[in-house]
Design a protein around this nucleic acid. Structure first.
Length: 217
DNA sequence: TTATGGATTAGCT
DNA sequence: GCTAATCCATAAA
């Protein structure tokens, strides 16, 4: 098992585009206890993220300025902004830029590394074939479910401390084949190339067509 | 106080 | 490819 060490706050205190691109290849970590109260660590590699640019970005939750819902985005960098969407799903973001600015990065897809059985249980699916792995954490709602991320439990959580239950680390993996496309599921600023993916990863979400239109970075 | 629609997903045609 | 499911933050009144 490789050693994973947390990213520090300065990593997140930058333009969301830069943070998004550099988050590719990093690892999301969740410490859990299973039903026998054994320590369990879920880990998955970041393969798809989107940058949201704060108040200047019409598609961002921060577009209308500071509200009770999006307050974490305007707080210090490196904290989890979790929101509830379509009556069913939670989505995980990390706050970026200095306190007072509303930038953030949305986690859209991960490649499971460890704790796969636990993730499948959280998702309510049975792993029968290798392809089932592809539906475990490919999609913002899916990855949140696999990691049992909810607003009540995780909104505002500091993601830079490995002592905490949820954090982001790096294990020396070098991201290759980074590509950029328009963001998915939005109705404003739809053309801006702010979705960053590991182009070779089968765990990336969304239509394949988007991957053909994208740009190399 | 009520109305609207969303940074999604699963399941069906 | 299309759409129902399902809640809540925000806007409108």
């Amino acid at each position: 098992m490789t050693h994973i060490r947390p990213l520090d706050r300065s990593f997140f205190a930058r333009d969301p585009r830069r943070v998004a691109r550099e988050l590719l290849g990093k690892v999301l970590v969740r410490h859990e206890k299973d039903r026998h109260t054994r320590e369990l660590r879920l880990t998955a590699r970041v393969v798809e993220v989107e940058a949201y640019l704060g108040e200047t970005d019409p598609a961002a939750h921060a577009a209308a300025g500071l509200t009770a819902r999006n307050a974490v985005l305007f707080g210090p960098p490196g904290h989890a902004y979790v929101y509830f969407i379509y009556g069913n799903y939670y989505c995980l973001n990390v706050s970026c830029e200095a306190e007072g600015k509303g930038g953030g990065v949305l986690f859209r897809a991960l490649e499971p590394l460890s704790g796969v059985e636990q993730m499948a249980r959280a998702r309510g699916i049975t792993l029968r074939s290798p392809e089932d792995l592809l539906r475990l954490t490919s999609g913002p709602g899916r990855l949140s479910e696999a990691f049992s991320i909810t607003r009540a439990r995780d909104n505002g959580r500091d993601l830079t401390s490995s002592k905490d239950s949820l954090w982001i680390g790096e294990d020396g993996y070098r991201a290759r084949g980074i590509r950029v496309t328009p963001r998915i599921g939005i109705s404003k600023a739809t053309e801006k190339p702010l979705r960053y993916i590991l182009g070779r990863s089968p765990f990336v979400s969304g239509p394949k067509r988007l991957r053909m239109l994208d740009k190399r970075v």
